[in-house]
């Protein structure tokens, strides 16, 4: 347990000392700041080109933007670019330590392979959760400043639904990175998992009972629809636990 704590401290320090915090934190902060601004400007840009000769005289009717458009930008960025970035970044979570030889040094000390994996999972999850919460807070504030209205409840719900999915994804990537020897292979498999969930989400029962439902939930919640997230959350937690257990089993048999 002491070794787990020591390694977790190292991971946390590594997060703030390397590109990790800038990539994840910087990206989320950028989207949080730019989302409401883009939501405000997009209709104005479209109106400015509407009816011009460049558009062949086409008139574009655009409704006035509001807080929902700013939140939609935030949700879209989370479920697309941020999710893809997490997959790419975490592809090398375990394999890079093996490749660099650092795993050899630390795992010949009283640090178990399971503790090594768990510390990686916890530190990356904490980084993503904290950066996302900060991003959500900034989104709320900027939306309020621009549109004068920003209901916190719906933003919290949509962000929380995505966060559960993201933490599950960290667990899945822990497994894939323990399984594969290269970051690229693990990331490609991660995209495969994401695509599989996306396709499954089109089938109503899968959307209702599996983590695929969490991919659709943020947009649905934002649209004001009733979304039952109980089963998707429970199944995501189950997938995360199974992934971590499988990662521990795979990694304990891996030659370093």
């Amino acid at each position: 347990m002491r070794a787990f704590g020591a390694f977790l401290r190292k991971e946390s320090l590594e997060t703030v000392r390397t590109w990790r915090v800038w990539v994840v934190g910087g990206m989320l902060l950028f989207f949080a700041l730019s989302g409401p601004v883009l939501a405000e400007l997009t209709p104005q840009i479209l109106r400015s080109v509407s009816g011009t000769s460049g558009m062949g005289g086409l008139i574009i009717e655009v409704p006035d933007p509001g807080w929902a458009d700013a939140y939609a930008q935030w949700v879209k960025n989370l479920s697309q670019i941020v999710t893809w970035a997490i997959i790419v970044m975490l592809g090398g979570m375990i394999s890079s330590e093996r490749k660099k030889g650092t795993a050899t040094l630390v795992l010949t000390k009283p640090l178990s392979r399971r503790a090594f994996l768990m510390a990686k999972f916890v530190s990356h999850s904490v980084l993503i959760v904290l950066a996302t919460l900060l991003g959500a807070a900034v989104t709320w504030l900027v939306t309020l400043l621009i549109f004068g209205e920003a209901p916190a409840g719906v933003l919290a719900e949509t962000t929380a639904a995505w966060l559960v999915f993201a933490v599950m994804l960290v667990a899945v990537m822990t497994l894939l990175s323990a399984l594969m020897d290269s970051q690229v292979s693990a990331a490609l498999l991660g995209f495969g998992v994401l695509a599989g969930l996306g396709i499954a989400g089109m089938w109503e029962p899968a959307s209702r009972y599996t983590p695929a439902g969490l991919m659709n939930a943020p947009a649905a919640l934002l649209g004001g629809r009733e979304v039952a997230t109980g089963w998707p959350i429970a199944s995501a937690v189950l997938v995360a636990i199974v992934s971590l257990a499988a990662a521990a089993a795979v990694f304990s048999r891996k030659e370093l």
Binding site: R2, A3, A6, R9, T18, T104, L105, V106, K109
Partner: peptide
């Protein structure tokens, strides 16, 4: 031996020692 590039020698030794409690 593979080391964490972002650490100093002293930091690495402290980290290694902390793994032993």
């Amino acid at each position: 031996p593979g080391f964490y590039d972002w650490m100093t020698a002293e930091e690495f030794l402290r980290f290694a020692g902390s793994l032993f409690g």
